[in-house]
Design a protein around this nucleic acid. Structure first.
Lengths: 219, 219
DNA sequence: CCAAAAGTGTTGACTGTACACCCATGT
DNA sequence: ACATGGGTGTACAGTCAACACTTTTGG
């Protein structure tokens, strides 16, 4: 016996903006949940893998590719979606805010970055998905180099530390942070300094590699 | 636009048997991959969630319920399955071998536990799935109490340590292991001793709780 | 009394954490 | 000159890893 299901791919797109961790939401223009905020996503095309669908949506809604993306969980079940038993493969993506280009054609859906602390009421079970994604993101920061995906190519140590503090929601000790992070050898100093601020210029760093990798230990 | 896909749920069922970590495989009786070994699994029924399908398969093939089960990953893509773009939600389950009851009606499929070190040639991309499941299992042992799911209700410290050694594939120091594990307060001694062996009798322990839980730290 | 696994502590190395001051610049 | 974030080192505590002998039983 063989049955057929509808599958959607939904993405939680994280970025750091205005010193806060934010998620991209769009306003639904169709039923169900018309006019409610939701994660970008959509049905898989015929012969499309969930991953490809997620990348397609990412490109369409945020104008970005070559981005850190990872499968989160597959949700299924009645009650999630009034249209019936729809199965959703959820992804999360990390994007430095410079890379995001909101498409003009999507104006109607008003894609907006919401702070995780002030989320609006959400369609489907997207609140749950976002919570789950945040938990995963925080876990990932502790044993992978994923933080690179939230930072621009060149950055100061302070920006790096802030990125951790914002996503983990904790304060970190400046000296200990430096020590630990330098030991990991993930970043290297460039020849540039950040000048023009009215303080001592800051060394500018870049990641040795901008590819996902696991660490032996961290935090 | 809305399309429909076929979805399967496949399970990697782990158990410890004869001092080895083993996986339950069945011999396929139909094309494709007829007569090849494969993970138990099957298509989702209409209106069935992936999780329910996994539990159904688990019950049918290994005669067990109330078991540690966890979603692993959702695989999709051409090339995986010659029938086309079939999407598979993979699960893994941990079962103490006492609980397993292979159903007689399944004799034709000859469900068999294979050691992870001596796997036969496998159907689909099931080799990859098993590898992935093993990695996840090993990771889980380091920050959860999942080991309980591989052990019977009553066990000795030695069995516990062996369970870790077998699944992680490493030798552990007896004294350090005891110290660390007792600190976690996951197990308590019962009033029974294992007698009848020709050595000093061993204290019999049981888990305080047989529910999944995360640890602050471990291994 | 012998074989076999059960049970038990100490030490040194390392890792993580707490903590405060001087530096270089722009205004 | 001063305000601002940039940059640096040390000491203590806690955790982890290495290591060997005595105990209790059954045969």
């Amino acid at each position: 016996m063989r049955f057929y299901q509808s599958i959607t791919a939904d993405i939680t797109i994280f970025t750091i903006k205005d010193g806060q961790l934010k998620v991209l939401l769009i306003k639904r223009t169709n039923e169900p949940f018309k006019n409610k905020w939701a994660l970008p996503g959509g049905f898989l095309y015929q012969n499309e893998t969930p991953e490809k669908a997620a990348l397609r949506v990412l490109k369409a809604k945020a104008g970005i590719k070559n981005v850190y993306i990872e499968q989160l969980y597959t949700f299924g079940g009645f009650g999630r979606d009034p249209r019936g038993n729809i199965i959703t493969v959820a992804y999360f993506a990390l994007v430095p805010r410079e890379k995001i280009k909101i498409s003009r054609s999507d104006k109607i859906q008003t894609p907006t970055f919401y702070s995780l602390k002030k989320l609006p009421s959400l369609a489907f079970d997207h609140g749950r998905i976002i919570k789950y994604a945040l938990k995963r993101l925080q876990a990932k920061l502790e044993y992978t180099n994923a933080i690179y995906a939230l930072l621009p190519e060149y950055f100061t140590f302070n920006q790096l530390q802030k990125a951790y503090e914002i996503t983990l929601g904790t304060k970190l000790d400046k000296r200990n942070f430096r020590k630990k992070f330098l030991m990991l050898k993930l970043i290297k100093p460039t020849k540039k300094m950040l000048r023009g601020t009215r303080q001592r210029p800051a060394q500018i760093y870049q990641f040795v590699s901008r590819k996902p990798a696991e660490l032996k230990k961290f935090f």
